[in-house]
Design a protein around this nucleic acid. Structure first.
Lengths: 119, 119
DNA sequence: GAGCGTTCCCTTGGAATGCAAGGGGTATAG
DNA sequence: CTATACCCCTTGCATTCCAAGGGAACGCTC
């Protein structure tokens, strides 16, 4: 995979996980798979990245976990959003959009801002 | 400042710095100032973040530094893009755009992808 | 029923990044 | 001559992510 693309993952992983769980409870493997397919293979979340993140989010009270059986009859831990997690998701989506817009503003600029005041 | 917005800075700082220097050589203080104003105060780069980043980029051969005098008659270190830095900037802008588009794709989805294949 | 690929869980060590909090020095304004 | 803005940098810390593992259970094939 294009590792340079993944550098940007830092910071936006949590919101991606929260968003994945909006569709219903999922186990870790399915979360990775959903993000990958929903992004058309652009975003690959490694397992060594995913599970600490899930633990982190659970610890913050944004997720709840429960053991169950996957559709393949394998033991699996299903994560689901808490109400607090849903609220956090809405906030982080907004924050992400604002951040992405700000970066886009800088990167797409074709002129220096207020040139007389920059030196 | 809204610290939650700044979490996302991880990973995209370098491309912001490179872009700032497209307008000509700048010293550190001016880089911060340019990014802040170009993003309409959304992006605040702390000094403790900036200078290690500049050192890093210089070490990679993407920037060159030279001592000079600012327009305020103060000693200042001016950073300027190397040809390699320009090339890197073009690449990273593309990578950023692809990444932002991928995240947007996931976050804006209104339906689970291929529901029959998700657990 | 032995072996193997897939699915699913997790941990550890390391590297990188950004932040907070400092210290220092110089010019211009009041 | 004191204050303020400008401008450089470092150290210590916390966090995050990745690479690289290990383990176990299921279902398939032979």
């Amino acid at each position: 995979m294009d590792s340079s693309r993944l550098e940007f993952l830092r910071g936006s992983l949590d919101v991606l996980i929260l968003k994945a769980l909006v569709w219903g409870p999922l186990h870790g493997y399915a979360i990775t798979s959903l993000i990958r397919r929903h992004s058309e293979d652009a975003l690959l979340v490694e397992e060594g990245t995913l599970y600490p993140a899930l633990w982190r989010l659970e610890n913050k009270g944004l997720l709840e976990a429960e053991w169950g059986l996957s559709e393949n009859n394998r033991k699996a831990k299903f994560y689901r959003l808490t109400p607090e997690g849903r609220r956090q998701l809405r906030n982080e989506v907004k924050t992400w959009e604002a951040y992405a817009a700000a970066v886009a503003k800088v990167l797409s600029a074709t002129q220096p801002p207020e040139p007389e005041k920059i030196a």
